[in-house]
Design a binder for these strands. Structure first.
Length: 565
RNA sequence: GCGCCCGUAGCUCAGCUGGAUAGAGCGUCGGCCUCCGGAGCCGAAGGCCACAGGUUCGAAUCCUGUCGGGCGCGCCA
């Protein structure tokens, strides 16, 4: 069942009414594509159509003349005119619709009847999607950069699911390769230090204080049992041991902290498992069979430049070791084999140069690169003492997700991070964030929700029941603030659809703020409990509906909707 | 040098599959609690939407170029 969507209903009626005229002008194609918008200024009605402006060229007449003809068609449509008080031409040729009170209260009534599912299932075509995000080296705690992608990815998942897609989320754990060996060496060095030995710290090692903490946990388990393997230089067994233990402890921590951030993954996928299962070798064979691999200078190259990449890329080093690229191809082949319609990856901007080669690999294997979508999230910088620093685990300069949660909490952190478009870089000053958290817009929205809950509680105490599935009409004309509120509520299905289509969770936060604002205005102008009995019932219905939509909006970005605060 | 992203109010940012007078929060100034939650509401000030061309009825939005900032350009991941 699809959700009641006033904007689509009206667009369809307009479309039917003008189709014949558009056909005369040889622009029947426009009929399927009528865009009704909320006009900006006052006095322009409730909905506005720009169809005359677009079609005027084809009609060979001035836009306002085209509008006049189209308005005749609209006025001839009984079905449409039942819902409109009037249809007018304004400005350069806009056609403005003034909706009747009846269609507005009816829309509210139907939306309310849908309960908490209003706006759900709005996509045209349902897809099964694998959404991979955060995906980090398990070499340290998650920082604010990961927090951004976590908040974005989890919100996107919620939105896509609500919009009607089937979504599986996955965290890819890069537990293989040189960075992990580096991590193992760093821990071995910390361990030796904890055991009272002076050792040289690896040159590119992980400097952060957290490595001491992890080494201490390991030391508490095993005492100085490993010290023989660590001095004077850690041997292979020691590096492997510390790598494994470190990975285990870090992942434990990552899972816990993501849980606190309300981010839960369906799957955790170990890169190392691709080696164990032979998937990496298979991927290489598949690429070779496709005839896209060449051996040069002792290494095997994938000829990605044939598919738009800047240059060819190494699959197998001259040492015989596969590169990260090869295992990543294996991973994505594995994803495809699980039968998803679409793969979506969220990557940090520092990996964007990697996009063309992965797309090229898809094409080399004759897979449609359209099915493989990569969303780039711009970076997060830490501001300390007015100085910008980049998040770096190796240098140890970072604000961790844990610090973020401890200082401002999950609600403010998620709202703060998701509000910004993923295309913009984000500066994070923790001290400022603490201050800002008190004025965080999330509270503005939550406050509206709590306020409505309070009204509904009060109404119940006074024996006034909010209607559960209908909004009865008082017979009085709707107040301006009621119309504004209903129109804003009616936008919700479209907002969900656009947020899903454009992969833009910030559409939801923006909408939630707008809705809260419209509600606050309604509240200050339209008494609910102290109104005439019939009006009270109607407004209680609007309150319930608004509460449902605010709660759902907040849920779509993983923020709680408190009953009181 | 080449590629990707960004440049909108004093600050932080929405809006960018083209629409009418460009929005919000914070900050500044001035109002509103005998009345359903003042974490709220109302009002004021504040903008050549980086710049220059182009596309068209119409451009913050699309195209080209310039300037400024971020990121990337490994047989690292």
């Amino acid at each position: 069942m699809t959700s009641i969507d006033l904007l689509s209903v009206m667009a369809n009626l307009v479309s039917d009414a003008v189709r014949g005229r558009l056909a005369l002008w040889n622009r029947e194609d426009l009929a399927g594509n009528i865009a009704l918008e909320r006009p900006s200024g006052k006095g322009h009605g409730d909905l506005s159509a720009n169809i005359a402006l677009i079609a005027a060229g084809a009609a060979g007449i001035p836009p306002r003349d085209a509008a006049a003809l189209l308005v005749e068609d609209l006025r001839a449509s009984e079905e449409l005119m039942k819902l409109c008080n009037s249809v007018e031409i304004a400005g350069p040729g806009f056609i403005n619709l003034f909706l009747s009170d009846g269609v507005l209260s009816d829309t509210a009534s139907r939306a309310l009847a849908e309960g908490t599912e209003f706006g759900a299932g709005v996509v045209d075509k349902q897809e099964s999607i694998l959404l991979e995000y955060v995906s980090a080296n398990p070499t340290g705690p998650l920082h604010a950069g990961h927090a951004r992608y976590a908040a974005f990815g989890d919100s996107l998942k919620r939105i896509l699911v609500y919009a009607g897609h089937q979504v599986t989320t996955e965290f890819y754990i890069n537990d293989y390769g040189t960075q992990m060996l580096n991590f193992g060496r760093s821990l071995a060095a910390r361990y030796a230090q904890l055991c009272g030995h002076e050792v040289q710290f690896p040159e590119d090692g992980y400097q952060g204080e957290y490595t001491v903490h992890i080494a201490r946990l390991i030391e508490q388990q095993i005492g100085d049992e490993m010290i023989g393997h660590v001095l004077p230089e850690p041997d292979a067994a020691a590096i492997d041991f510390f790598k494994q233990e470190g990975c285990r402890l870090v992942l434990q921590d990552i899972r816990a902290i993501l849980g606190r951030f309300r981010v839960n993954f369906d799957n955790w996928f170990l890169e190392s498992s691709l080696y164990g299962s032979g998937a990496v070798d298979e991927a290489l064979e598949t690429l070779e069979a496709a005839g896209e691999v060449e051996t040069r200078e002792g290494a095997k190259w994938l000829l990605t430049s044939r598919f738009g990449d800047d240059k060819d890329r190494v699959l197998i080093r001259s040492s015989g070791e596969p590169t990260y690229f090869t295992s990543d191809i294996a991973y994505h082949l594995q994803k495809l084999s699980r039968g998803f319609d679409r793969l979506i990856n969220i990557w940090g901007a520092d990996h964007h140069g990697y996009v063309p080669r992965m797309k090229a690999a898809f094409e080399a294997l004759s897979h449609d690169p359209q099915r493989f979508e990569i969303i780039i999230g711009q970076l997060v910088n830490v501001i300390e003492m007015g100085e910008r620093k980049q998040m770096s685990k190796r240098a140890g300069t970072m604000v961790t997700l844990q610090e973020l949660l401890d200082s401002i909490g999950a609600d403010a952190a998620r709202f703060f991070l998701v509000e910004r478009s993923n295309d913009s870089t984000l500066d994070l000053d923790l001290e400022k964030a603490k201050l800002q958290s008190e004025e965080n817009p999330v509270y503005y929205v939550q406050y509206a929700h709590a306020r409505i809950c309070s009204i509904l509680r009060r109404a119940a105490e006074e024996g006034l029941a909010a209607p559960a599935d209908t909004t009865s009409v008082s017979g009085e004309p709707l107040a301006g603030q009621e119309r504004e509120l209903i129109m804003k509520l009616a936008e919700f299905p479209r907002v969900v659809r656009i947020a899903a289509e454009t992969r833009g969770p910030q559409r939801i936060t923006t909408y939630a703020r707008e809705l809260a604002a419209v509600f606050h205005v309604f509240y200050h102008n339209c008494p609910v409990i102290r109104a005439e009995p019939e009006t009270t019932v109607f407004r209680l219905g609007l309150c319930r509906l608004t509460r449902n939509v605010i709660a759902r909006s907040l849920d779509l970005v993983g923020v709680e909707a408190p009953q009181s605060m």
